[in-house]
Amino acid sequence: MGCVSSSPGRSRRAPGYEDPAVLASQTSFTVNEVEALYELYKKLSYSIFKDGLIHKEEFQLALFRTSKGPSLFADRVFDLFDLKRNGVIEFGEFVRSLSIFHPKAPESDKAAFAFKLYDLRGTGYIEKEELRELVVALLDESDLCLSDSAVEEIVDNTFSQADSNGDDRIDPKEWEEFVKKNPASLRNMSLPYLQDITTAFPSFVMHSEVDD
């Protein structure tokens, strides 16, 4: 009869939509998982601006569930996800970046992402001042209070462990060595949710068109 069923989702695909099979081949996800992520992506990308792209405000809203003020960490993560640097996270960028957080993703990818995250000024090094800034932001955003001298002690102690050549900055090689000895420092780089997103979020697979 030549009967072709059309998928209602196809006509409303987000502007940066990419083929889930291609994304799955380039990431730690299966095709079904990429499709599940698309359901999550649509929800996030239509939460405020309704344009199928994730804006910084939508990203922050999802992370904190409130439109609280600027967050250094959310800003940094958003900027690293926004690979094209055009102010929005497209679907492909969302999947490729989240893939680094898959528990099975290579540790070296996680370490490299974390290094970029902490290298606030993009100099290729994590400098003492940057680490101080990160710790102060962490404390501010969590309403914790530590004296300046306590912050200084934490930063100095961290540098005494990580900055092996003593030049007051952590280079990528020193970082690699440091995270090998301190794997807990990359704990936030693995999201158990991604291990099996289709099981964790069964509603996401309702629209899946492919069997893996």
């Binding site: 999550l40 929800k43 996030l44 999802a62 992370l63 904190f64 569930r65 960490f73 940094r76 993560v77 989240l98 957080f101 974390a114 995250l117 902490y118 680490l131 990160l134 710790v135 962490l138 955003e141 969590s142 002690e153 934490i154 930063v155 102690n157 961290t158 462990q161 990580a162 440091f178 995270v179 301190n182 807990a184 420092s185 990359l186 704990r187 936030n188 780089m189 999201l191 949710y193 997103i197 964790a200 979020f201 509603s203």
Partner: peptide
């Protein structure tokens, strides 16, 4: 023993935790 800053950042939800993206369901 003083903790290291990266471990601190990694372990606190205010630091850098993407779980919120999935918990809004």
């Amino acid at each position: 023993r003083t903790c290291n800053a990266f471990q601190l950042i990694s372990s606190m939800s205010s630091g850098f935790d993407l779980s919120g993206l999935f918990e809004s369901e």
